[in-house]
Design a protein around this nucleic acid. Structure first.
Lengths: 301, 301
DNA sequence: TTTTTGATTTGTCCTAGACAAACTGGACGT
DNA sequence: ACGTCCAGTTTGTCTAGGACAAATCAAAAA
């Protein structure tokens, strides 16, 4: 198991840091310092890639690169999140239960996790399952990952298994005439789908017609889809990892390609710190989402 | 609905063409020719973005840019795929049936499509459903999209609904002691998951233990996951849209981070034209996948 | 017909400079 | 003590053009 060397494209893939940023950091901060191959192209050792991943993680928690590069490498991993997490210690009701579920993932016990979640779903019903189990659990997994207690692949595993549970639960809901028509998707570069699924579950429970388009829809396509499906509402999800600077511009562009009668809702932890806008309704919690749906209904009664 | 303008990052997002390529094409071929904003930065009108998407589509079919840019704009859409499709007219048994399913998607009839597929699943059983319905249907959807008969959002809708069906079917399979342990995932920049799900369904039917990690796992994480789950096999999927030049290098790097006892399988239409390698076993059809599993079992009996 | 070889095409990487948006920290006023 | 404004700093993204290797094509040789 010899350590492989990464070229700059591979590092971009694996860390999510753009080539431009990688080169700029090297110029400005003196890290990373890749060796060069015969063509003079950058060759990153695996160790530096790891460190870059750690730095990226800390930056997602609110740290700034200038500070991070000043810290000696071995102290990095001890850093605490700088901006307070949106954790609500208020109703961390059964955090012990949640810890148990997390432990199952951590032990890579797929079957055990699925079974435990199925039980909770049966016990709580879909709405409370989403709000009291899936949402806080996802938050916890994110936190654990940021603190380095979870590996990336463990988070992926959690996401994959939970996606399956939610989809399955949604598919068992009864059919019938439904309204409004809600188109659920996300913009390119935003692959996270769990939030969308939670909203879909809640909306479906409330009798809305959900049109799940998956993630990463080009803007013009979202416009076309809204028209083709005669959607009343287009609901987008932004995760906390999405580059926040891009969101206002995206919403503005999107507003332009959507029919004026179609509402545009943007939700997820990514919009928490976005300034209020007339282009879209910003929805920061699951309760907000349900409230927004009720408000829409009232307005279109 | 005024036409929005795209900056170069937005075009990269929406077309999948890298900034480098966009600038190079402008330099070499004189297209696209974006206007500039006050800062001298490129501003692409929506119309050019559309044309770029068309060009990308044609390139995925095997056309070369040099030729495409020589063709007057209005003849582009009439171009036929250049390299023969991997369509097997041999056993396009019930292509009429498939057309019917496609039509349901095209009409945006979610409920009708789901019902029709459920019926087929019940009638055919999972294995034949995967091989005789889902696989050719996916091929057809891809073809239709390449020929412009399907919008992107319609393909997304198809993918999303079909993913749900497959996952649901997989989750109903009985448990029990299973082997070998197969870890299913894809590399970063490869978001397509349908192929993985088909394989998972077939492998689960054959009694393998499938560990679905979702898509886009960083290479080092795949190594860690393989170790943590003590995977016997790591199965990757590459779609036809994945940049083929990167695949051999990826497989080489991955081989280095995996334990020697772990088999590495790479499948999907993306590996059709990849030269044989000792780093991984290349699997081009679903039948191959089943055969590979049988061979593995024989070798480890 | 098939294979080999040389020319062309094409994508990616390189350097280095510029600038705007976001953030910081202090001064000021309430 | 707290909010607000402003200047200074940090940081990411864009630009330009040059270079080169891998992929592909086309013509010559076997």
């Amino acid at each position: 198991m010899k350590a492989p060397n990464f070229n700059i494209a591979a590092v971009e893939r694996d860390t999510g840091l753009s080539k431009d940023v990688l080169r700029m950091w090297e110029r400005r901060y003196g890290f990373p310092v890749p060796s060069r191959d015969n063509n003079g192209e950058r060759c990153y050792p695996a160790e530096q890639v790891e460190r870059l991943r750690l730095i990226k993680r800390l930056m997602d928690q609110g740290h700034r690169p200038g500070k991070l590069f000043a810290i000696p490498h071995d102290e990095l991993s001890a850093l605490a999140p700088r901006r307070p997490r949106a954790s609500e210690p208020g109703h961390s009701v059964d955090s012990a239960d949640l810890e148990e579920l997390l432990a199952l993932i951590k032990q890579h016990d797929l079957a055990g996790y699925q079974q435990a979640m199925q039980q909770r779903l049966a016990r709580q019903g879909l709405q409370r399952f989403v709000q009291d189990t899936v949402a806080p659990l996802t938050q916890q997994v994110g936190d654990s990952w940021e603190e380095g207690r979870f590996e990336v692949f463990e988070e992926h595993l959690y996401t994959e298994l939970t996606k399956r549970l939610l989809r399955q639960a949604i598919s068992t809901l009864p059919g019938g005439p439904r309204s409004p028509r809600v188109l659920l998707t996300s913009v390119p570069e935003e692959p996270h789908v769990l939030g969308l699924l939670m909203v879909e579950a809640l909306f479906a429970l409330e009798g809305a017609e959900c049109i799940p388009l998956g993630t990463q829809m080009p803007l013009l396509e979202i416009g076309r889809a809204a028209q083709a499906h005669q959607a009343d509402i287009v609901a987008l999800s932004f995760s906390v990892a999405f580059p926040q600077r891009q969101i206002p511009g995206l919403l503005e562009q999107l507003r332009m390609v959507l029919p004026a009668t179609t509402a545009l809702w943007a939700g997820g932890s990514g919009v928490l710190r976005i300034p209020r806008t007339t282009n879209a309704e910003l929805i920061t919690t699951l309760d907000d989402a349900i409230a927004a749906l009720a408000a829409w209904r009232e307005q279109h009664a």
